[in-house]
Design a protein around this nucleic acid. Structure first.
Lengths: 204, 204
DNA sequence: CCGCAGCCGAGACAATTGTCACGGACCTAG
DNA sequence: CTAGGTCCGTGACAATTGTCTCGGCTGCGG
């Protein structure tokens, strides 16, 4: 034998994929799944307690998302984090890299890839999905200003102008003005479309 | 041995879960995964060609969704369909049952459950997730009329009234009227919120 | 100090969206 | 057949949203 197994923590809010990945990884001789978590808080708590080698984190989770978990763990746990996500966009990748993740894999890839990435990352290398990385290089930065992002975020769920204005202590006219600029910058006609585009690109 | 293996077709647009489920099912001695499809159209084509015993269909897929695939196959293929979904709401279950699905399983369940459900359904029984079934009994029906659903669906992505009206060959006023009634029925203030609520409850 | 550029905030105006009252078509019970 | 119900379509009106122009503030390089 070549040494201890790689100790892996898995966090994903969707039970079916969490258990499926865990089952497949357990079939690998060199990997030991030591924890399965359904949300970010659980993942942080379990990681601090068990000190895994690798954390395999879903990006979209209630409470803390995968990148936020990575940030929390950076100071307290030596584990290297791999982010798995269904919405693999350049903006998301940038955010993940800034948080110090060691691996980034979209869920469109084959499940077998997961074990491969875990091995590479455990060996000290980083693994960034090449396709998303290429997109990230050829893609421009978010053209929206902070205030514009605030307004867009507050309007994410169809909130009315008046509600957004109250939440930010602004005149309604100002909110409409910001939104108008957003619509121009993203070349769309309604705030709902703006929200979709911004989400799509990982800006909100 | 007890007979031929159960021939299963899998359709899910998310590669990771599709391949993970396929890999796990292949480990079962009595199940044979004969096709993996990434969308509804592929699933229909493959099912008509291969005549599987069971179709394991994700609900959320581009193009045809799982329920629509079930409807298409009802006349041409003897396969029994199992729907797997991440948004398991009573409305969705009702729609699935109306289409004649034989199994309904939310993705929050353990991956091991999938093989169990496939066996039961292949044996002629139906399997409906008990928790969702209970919800469906105690929950009210969609109060929206067909036309109102049309309008809401066409406006799903923030389309403008004029676009919806053109798509349905209606006067803009009519579209606004339908939307107004929808807003009243769902007690919300904007069409975007109406879309969110309707999606949440599985009505669109 | 000045000019300049970018961002924020605001109000006036125009366009779009939401509300209301109405008429016609269809079905069903009496 | 007739009354009462529901659904669809429509236009007039009101409310909200989007566009435009403006002024104040800050930071930066002459």
């Amino acid at each position: 034998m070549t040494g201890a197994k790689i100790r892996v923590l898995i966090a994903d809010d969707e039970g079916m994929i969490r258990s499926a990945l865990a089952a497949l990884l357990r079939l690998e001789g060199d990997i030991d799944v030591i924890a399965e978590c359904a949300d970010g808080e659980q993942a942080v708590a379990a990681a601090e307690r068990l000190q895994p080698d690798i954390c395999l984190l879903d990006l979209e989770m209630p409470g803390l998302d995968g990148v936020e978990v990575t940030e929390r763990l950076r100071r307290t746990v030596a584990a290297r984090c791999v982010i798995v996500t269904r919405h693999a966009r350049p903006g998301v990748l940038r955010r993940a890299l800034a948080a110090g993740v060691a691996g980034f894999l979209p869920k469109s890839r084959d499940a077998g890839k997961v074990a491969e990435v875990i091995r590479r990352v455990a060996g000290g290398a980083r693994y960034i999905d090449p396709e998303i990385a290429a997109d990230a290089l050829s893609d421009e930065r978010c053209p929206l200003t902070n205030r514009e992002l605030d307004v867009l975020r507050l309007g994410r769920r169809g909130e009315t102008t008046a509600q957004i204005a109250r939440a930010l202590s602004l005149a309604p006219g100002t909110v409409r003005n910001h939104i108008s600029i957003v619509l121009t910058k993203l070349s769309v006609d309604t705030r709902q479309q703006a929200v979709l585009v911004a989400r799509e690109r990982g800006w909100i």
